[in-house]
Amino acid sequence: MDSAAADRPPLLEVEHVSFRYGPLPVLTDVSLAIREGDFLAIIGPNGSGKTTLLKIILGLLKPESGRILFQGRDIASGGVRPKIGYIPQKATHFDPLFPASVREVVSMAFQASKRGLSRRQGEEAAIRRALEVVGMAEAMDRRIGRLSGGQQQRVFIARAIVDKPRALFLDEPTTGVDAGTQDLFYELLDRLNKREGLTIALITHDIGIVDRHITQVACLNQRLVYHGSHAEFCRSDTLKEMLAGGHHLVSHVH
């Protein structure tokens, strides 16, 4: 890891996490730290435990052993909920007839901190600001199901960032999205990371799409095979081994 990165405090620490589905081990003794300002790509072959690790970090699954610390506090102890915006793999696979407007979709993020129909002060302004950041403010009153896949992704980012999370986690966010839209999407994430200082972690099966933007790489194959800076990863044996193994992981690493 480069020294500049090591200076930044860890936002999230995965400590000796193991997980199994029945008898099948999925993750074995995985430890890694995500630091403030990181743009981390989590890569690995199918079935390597990427999504499972993400779900454990988000509190959707309980690890068999090990723990997750968010800003130094164990998320398993009551009251600690990591302030992380999340975009699931199938975010755009919702019921297209669902009658929610873009405004309503973004407003859903405010539910955890409030009750009922009443609006928190400044909420409307925050929704508009988040939609402006992703370039979707004009579509505020449109029905989410009427937008293109790329536009829907932007709205989901707005929902994920509207309540000012410390980090944004995405699971294969551009599956099924065309190449041009993908580029725009990752440029938006890049802006959020570099300008707004948002920590980003994303699972991808194709690091080539994101290699211009990421700072860190974690390579998973049940165990953590590699974790470090992207520059070192490009020089590392891990990359060569993966290429030799025929993994479609790096399409245009320079």
Partner: peptide, 23 residues
């Protein structure tokens, strides 16, 4: 329903994200 309106809307629309958000 009115008191839990947004939570119910969120989990009906996207159960997993709602869960992550604390619903």
């Amino acid at each position: 329903i009115a008191v839990n309106y947004r939570k119910l809307m969120f989990m009906t629309f996207d159960r997993e994200s709602a869960q992550v958000a604390g619903v």
